[in-house]
Simulated assay, not measured.
Amino acid sequence: MSIFIKEHLINNASLIREAQGLTLLRKSLDLYNIREVFVPKIYKVTQRELHLQKILIKDFDTNNMKKLGKGLAKLHKIKFKNYGFEIDNFIGLANQKNILTKEWGEFFFEYRLLYQVSLIENEKLKSDFLSVLEKNKKKLISYLNKHTKHPSIVHGDLWYGNVLYNDIDKNIYLMDPSVHFANREVDVAMTYMFGGFSKEFYDEYNKEYPLEKDFETRKEIYNLYHYLNHYNLFGITYLEDCRDRIKLIDYL
């Protein structure tokens, strides 16, 4: 048995929440017999250490990108009862606030965008961003609800580094999730942030579960959450990305 040990020096519950997210993803994949994607086995978890199945990483090829697209779409097809999550968790090492609710647009507005803006230390910037959000609150919530079919389980932090191909068993693994129930578009949107996902991935996803019209606009709104989070964590490098996307809200 080959084990990868992920260590955490900060005394919080992020590794425990990560393990809970992996477990929930595994249960969903197993229950619906989805075999295009997997999650690593968990052997032990504490606040300090997470012991996982070790992955021998190999680059993705076209066929594996297709499998990933199809598997993710199948996962997103599963219908859940509520949006959000029953407990707070983490996006990377940042806190991610949650409740369970029937209403997607308001959840995303309050617990994703508004929460991240509230963390901005620059008071002028925070005021400017809050002004845009509050002015467009009803319009934005209505727009997001209009283009939401049902709560899906989402990975929540789906950039290229969190998807691995294992050269040992030839399976694709989802890693480091920030699991919650959401409009499935949030996962697809994040795949565009840092690249790495091929045309074949998107083609296969859309073949299995086509994205709705005007996804390109919603993609930028959903990624605003991640850019705000990156700005709050890492600083000014991500500020213009935030500004560009928050401007879109005025033109919905």
Rank of each mutant, 00 (worst) to 15 (best):
L114S: 06
I42T: 03
D128N: 15
N136V: 01
S131I: 10
N63S: 02
L25T: 06
L22G: 06
R17C: 08
E121P: 08
T101P: 11
K44D: 06
H76I: 02
Q47D: 11
N122F: 13
K135I: 13
N98C: 08
E110H: 12
W104F: 12
S118A: 01
L125T: 15
I10Q: 13
N122Q: 13
L52H: 06
N33F: 15
L24Q: 08
F85R: 03
N64E: 07
K138N: 13
K58Q: 09
G21P: 13
G92A: 01
Q47M: 14
K6S: 12
L15M: 01
L31Q: 10
L140I: 06
L93H: 14
T46I: 10
S131V: 06
I5N: 15
L9N: 11
L75R: 03
G71S: 04
Q47H: 06
L93N: 15
P40H: 12
Y83G: 06
N63W: 03
E7R: 13
G105Q: 12
S28I: 06
D30P: 11
D59S: 07
Y83L: 04
Y111F: 15
D128T: 11
S127E: 13
T46R: 04
I91T: 08
K124G: 15
K137M: 06
I55M: 03
E110N: 12
E121R: 09
L15R: 00
K74S: 03
E18V: 14
K97G: 04
S142F: 12
L9S: 12
K54P: 12
G92V: 04
K74Y: 08
E36A: 08
A13W: 14
I16L: 09
F85C: 04
H51R: 01
V45M: 01
K58P: 07
S127P: 08
N63K: 02
Y115I: 03
F90T: 06
N11Y: 09
K44G: 07
L125M: 11
D128M: 12
K41N: 10
L24G: 03
D59M: 03
I5W: 11
Y43S: 02
F90E: 11
I141L: 15
N63P: 00
F108H: 07
W104M: 10
G21F: 13
N82S: 07
H8P: 00
L31S: 07
Y32A: 09
L130I: 13
L68T: 02
T23V: 05
I57C: 04
Q47T: 14
F4Y: 14
H76C: 05
N12V: 01
W104E: 07
N64K: 11
Q96D: 13
E103F: 15
N95Q: 11
G21H: 05
N12E: 08
K137L: 05
K79P: 08
N11K: 11
S2K: 14
S127C: 09
L113D: 00
I34G: 10
E134Q: 09
L52P: 09
A94Y: 08
V132D: 05
Y115F: 06
I55S: 00
N98M: 07
N11L: 14
Y111D: 12
L119M: 00
S2C: 11
L100E: 02
E123Y: 14
A94C: 01
N63R: 05
